[in-house]
Nucleic acid binder design. Structure first.
Length: 423
RNA sequence: GUGAGCGUAGCUCAAAUGGUCAGAGCACUGGACUGUGGCUCCAGGGGUUGAGGGUUCGAGUCCCUCCGUUCACCCCA
């Protein structure tokens, strides 16, 4: 048996409905906020991610699915959406059409990590980006949008963590101060953090090792080092969120792992989820577009992990769907009724009804069982008796009542009956 | 990449110290109900016990290797 790829699960028929429901809500809410969908390819030149995400990041260093195409060019399956989206933004000069461009992208991302609960090698994100404005109002609206989305999905108990990590004017000073502080306490740090010290020192703030946390607790905080503009920006974002009654906690340890972030960073956490508990995360990245060869363009965005949203909904036992009885199952007694049944079913389908019949020559009993299992609201029984009299038997699968009606009126009759009924 | 746990029918699981141990429930198909679902009862199909090797008179049960899977670390959605 040829098996699927580890960490790239199939979404089976019984669960695809949940995904559809999730994405319908997302598209609806995004549309209300004025966002347009963009679809970019699932792969890009490797260079795009190396430059966009950052040479030293874990994603680029060890998690990318990279391969050479037949022309010898290095390509990579997208590990995240922002870089692709910004590439398209620059390539097609989307900024020329309006000063603030609002885009979203839904699709699979690929990262070569060891799978575990809430983490996959192919996973799905709803990625949202607002490009073109540096103002704090955009930050606030973007966070409010995400908050709105989670609410629309029915998620409960999600915490919002917020931080500002400064900009090129002030972050270097902080970084320097932090490194000096950490360097002095090197002996207390775990081996991983020794590596971080040179590669990505701020990540030490995130480390879970107790001794490192102690070091982190006494470390200089970013807030003390923010420059005037960054401080004002952050304060403005916070006060707008307060005005919108969106609860948030400032988490100075929230240092995101991608190089391109500036100023505002945020994460929505669900502590009910276990180890991989970030349900969505994002931030501002005012330098990325320029880094990719475009004009200096401020932007902010976030990504939502669809698997983690679904897991959260499972965890709180509110699956997105409830079974309904709809449509018509046409059962036949005797092979001679089949042509009539087939024709009837096709007609019903053209009239917009969900309709089916047995294609395997099963017994009437078997057909009725199928009708019940597939949640059909009505069944129509066609047999030699009915055909001889020019009639059909119409049965209500919920009440069990049945009666004979003229064959010629079946379609009309069924299209007038209530279409959807709760179980 | 590192560590730990687990791998028996489609699914969830049984099978005491190795000796009728290859089973049950659900699901599926058929029947009881001679043309009818959801309840009940009966029957049937389906497994080289993840793969390969070893120990033994004998292994699902012990040992080794590999593979898969789960959770955790790392990191992130």
């Amino acid at each position: 048996m040829i098996k699927g790829i580890r960490g790239a699960p199939d979404i089976l028929p019984e669960e695809s409905g949940k995904w559809q429901a999730l994405e319908i809500v997302a598209r609806d809410v995004l549309d209300r906020y004025g966002y347009s969908e963009i679809r970019t390819p699932a792969f890009e030149r490797t260079e795009l991610f190396v430059r966009g995400i950052g040479e030293g990041t874990d994603i680029v260093e060890k998690e990318m699915y990279t391969f050479e195409d037949r022309g010898g060019e290095s390509l990579t399956l997208r590990p995240e959406a922002t870089a692709s989206l910004m590439r398209a933004y620059v390539e097609h000069s989307l900024g020329a059409k309006s000063s603030l461009v609002k885009l979203y992208l839904i699709g699979p991302m690929f990262r070569h990590e060891r799978p575990q609960s809430g983490r996959f090698r192919q996973f799905h994100q709803v990625d949202v980006e607002a490009v073109g404005s540096p103002g704090p109002a955009v930050d606030a609206e973007v966070v409010a949008l995400l908050h709105h989305l989670l609410e629309a999905w029915g998620l409960r108990g999600i915490q919002l963590h917020l931080n500002s990590i400064g900009d090129p004017a002030c972050r270097p000073a902080y970084r320097q101060a932090f490194v000096a502080y950490a360097e002095a306490r090197r002996s207390a740090l775990c081996p991983d953090c020794h590596v971080r010290l040179t590669k990505n020192p701020l990540r030490i703030l995130d480390c879970k090792v107790p001794s490192c946390q102690q070091v982190a607790a006494g470390a200089p905080t970013i807030s003390a080092y923010l420059c005037e503009p960054c401080r004002d920006h952050f304060a403005a974002v916070r006060s707008m969120l307060d005005g919108l009654k969106i609860e948030h906690a400032v988490n100075e340890r929230l240092v995101r792992g991608l190089d391109y972030y500036t100023r505002t960073t945020f994460e929505f956490l669900n502590t009910a989820l276990g180890s991989q508990n970030a349900v969505a995360g994002g931030g501002r990245y005012d330098g990325l577009v320029e880094e990719l060869g475009g004009p200096p363009t401020p932007a902010i965005g976030f990504a939502i992990g669809e698997e983690r949203i679904l897991a959260s909904l499972e965890a709180q036992q509110t699956p997105p769907e409830s079974p309904t009885y709809t449509g018509v199952y046409v059962a036949t007694a005797g092979a001679e009724a089949f042509p009539t049944a087939l024709d009837l079913v096709q007609t019903l389908r053209r009239r917009g009804l969900r309709a089916a019949l047995d294609l395997e020559g099963r017994s009437l009993k078997g057909q009725m069982r199928q009708a019940n299992k597939d949640r059909y609201r009505y069944s129509v029984i066609l047999g030699s008796d009915e055909l001889a009299r020019g009639q059909a038997t119409l049965k209500d699968m919920l009440s069990g009542e049945q009666r004979a009606i003229p064959l010629s009126e079946v379609v009309e009759h069924l299209t007038r009956l209530p279409e959807r009924e709760q179980a």
